[in-house]
């Protein structure tokens, strides 16, 4: 009987797992009552680095500094700060490193444009390489000499009764072929 219901249990389990999702660092007591501001806070905090763990955003991190920054962020949102003002506030204290997405400015041009520039250079080099590359000499076969042509003609001859040209490439040529 239970076997009959196995697919149902399986499906039920799968549906339950869908609802589980990842565990969030954001504690219930941190959340704002205003759903719109809370949503903004979540979006912003995904772009702010937790300086203790460094490769997590403050939205992901359970470090206490991350919690402090989340609370601070929400306070400022309630006070009516724009996204820009919040980022400026944090950058003034912690530097650009607190932004997970580095800003576009003179000192980060190499970071932003370096990889595309290298890609374009590589592409140009590749095109240049394949267009200019001469065929290597060894790849061009030497033209057939008289004997070889005669032998080829004999081999290609439709009439099986015709006498094939005597093999001229004999002892003295053997072992000399590449």
């Amino acid at each position: 009987m239970t076997v009959r219901f196995a697919p149902v249990f399986f499906l039920l389990g799968a549906i339950l797992m869908l609802g589980a999702g990842p565990a969030w660092a954001v504690e219930p007591d941190e959340r704002l009552a205003d759903a719109v501001l809370e949503a903004r806070a979540r979006v912003l905090s995904k772009d702010i680095r937790c300086l203790v763990c460094q490769n997590q955003s403050i939205d992901d991190s359970s470090a206490s500094l991350a919690r402090d920054l989340r609370l601070l962020l929400r306070e400022r949102l309630v006070e009516g700060d724009s996204d820009e003002q919040i980022f400026d506030f944090l950058v003034a204290r912690y530097g650009d490193f607190i932004l997970l997405k580095p800003p576009m400015k003179a000192s980060t041009y190499a970071l932003w444009f370096g990889p595309p520039a290298i890609f374009v250079l590589a592409l140009i080099a590749l095109i240049f390489f394949f267009r200019r590359r001469p065929a290597p000499e060894s790849a061009i076969p030497a033209p057939l000499d008289g004997d070889e042509r005669a032998r080829l003609a004999a081999l290609l001859d439709d009439d099986p009764q015709s006498t094939p040209a005597p093999p001229t490439r004999t002892a003295n040529h053997k072992g000399e072929r590449p």
Binding site: L51, V52, S64, L65, D68, L69, R93, G95
Partner: peptide, 13 residues
């Protein structure tokens, strides 16, 4: 205690 002044200083540890 809250660490708020620390944030003003850019303290992260």
């Amino acid at each position: 205690l809250s660490g708020r002044a620390g944030i003003e200083w850019g303290v992260y540890g």
